[in-house]
Amino acid sequence: MYTAPQPREDETLSAFFDGELSDEMARSVLRRLDAHPAERRRYDEYCAVSAALRGLPDAVPDLTSRVMAALEREPVVLAPMRRIAPRPPLLWAAAAAVAVLTWSLWSVLPHPQEPLPLAARQPADQALPYLAAHQDYAQAVMSPTEMQFTRVSLAEAGR
């Protein structure tokens, strides 16, 4: 069955990739990636294309490295810290459960170094002359943007 590209979902994935989502939204994306293989494939493609665009062979380190690097970048707090009241054991248990769940979800994330499938790349190359010609009207002098393609039947295209 054909599924139309969803711009808002793509933007969410992009924001997730850039680390711009709130914790709550990032968790929601992780849940979606876990539940939907198609979403994972799109995320995979997104990572590969972003890396290629930046000309970096390994532009997307694995998430664990990213998290560890982010932790290392945390600022050192020089002001005296407020004393934190001891938390009830139930909250600690909930926090541990969330940590386990988060780790298991991260572990199923797609591998960013996998190449983009040839079928997805080929039409994108074929589209370049049209994108370049359309740029006469498209406000800029930039290189044409990359596209994501789906084969559809005419009935589906008209839906």
Binding site: P5, P7, D10, E11, T145, E146, M147, V152
Partner: peptide
């Protein structure tokens, strides 16, 4: 082949 495409940012 009928092909449907969308740019990454979603504008095209």
């Amino acid at each position: 082949e009928t092909m449907k495409g969308q740019s990454r940012p979603g504008d095209i």
